[in-house]
Design a protein around this nucleic acid. Structure first.
Lengths: 150, 150
DNA sequence: ATTATTCAGTTGCATATACAGTAAAAATAT
DNA sequence: ATATTTTTACTGTATATGCAACTGAATAAT
């Protein structure tokens, strides 16, 4: 059995660790960049959708967004038709750090794909996308309390 | 730019989340399975090597291992020639849960690679391995305090 | 129309994570 | 041989993470 999980875990932790260190200079604490980029790219997104994009727990998302709001990176806006939801938008401060996050992420991407041909990079992306789609089904099930059988 | 990082992050978080939920029945708390499998597969490994295998901070490893030890899954043994290091071994209890961890991980692997041909799975693994090797260089640098320039 | 169910967001509590700094042993340099 | 640097493990403190349980709003079921 080819242990792709372990490779993915190692890569994810290493890259996340690097990002967290590098984003401290923008006063973003651990993990916050994940939320901020996605809010910048999807202005008006609600927490529930955001957490699905990141694959993180509801409570974790609540507090990460709360902190981002406290520190002036994003703001919550009420919806006129639905009192339940809160739409998320980046502030000017949030928009200002966005390019730095992208630049860093792009660099990590480049490093990750060092030595890859155009075609190989393309293949890696499409295979990873398929893996992600496979995995997110189970994630949603298990998070809803269902049990996997195997 | 193909955003492979985000895919990898999503996959890693989703799978880790599932594992943590599933391993609670063996009294393994968040993340502990990562350490335990590797100690089972590399009996006598020391903390410093283990953390490189997982890509986690020294202090995190210390406490994770401490907890595994407290809960009777692993034990530390002094080395006769080197007073600095502590070799890690699984206890009987640790060895007993190992197959369950493997079974779960194998299942997740299978789910992740659902719809993949033999060849595609092979390709995914080898590309991921290359990505991991690229990324771990930067990780080691940054963790040592070096700054990346880009 | 009323009741039940799902959805979206939050909070209490327990726990993991990591940076910075410490200490002691080992390896290296002089 | 001694001084310096590196290696290995650990601690203090701050912060993130997630499960379980809860709220109120929206939707579905009867």
């Amino acid at each position: 059995m080819k242990e792709i999980l372990r490779e993915i875990g190692m890569i994810a932790r290493a890259l996340d660790s690097i990002s967290n260190i590098e984003f401290k200079e923008f006063d973003l604490t651990k993990g916050q960049y994940l939320y901020l980029v996605r809010i910048c790219e999807n202005p008006g997104i609600i927490q529930e959708q955001l957490l699905e994009l990141i694959k993180v727990d509801r409570s974790t998302a609540t507090r990460a967004i709360q902190k981002l709001e406290t520190n002036g990176f994003v703001e919550k806006k009420e919806d006129l038709n639905n009192k339940k939801i809160k739409k998320l938008f980046p502030t000017e401060k949030g928009k200002a750090v966005y390019p730095f996050i992208i630049r860093e992420n792009d660099h990590s991407n480049l490093i990750a794909l060092d030595g890859f041909s155009e075609k190989e990079a393309e293949t890696a992306f499409s295979l990873l996308q398929r893996i992600r789609k496979n995995v997110e089904k189970d994630w949603e099930l298990v998070k809803k309390g269902n049990k996997r059988t195997y």
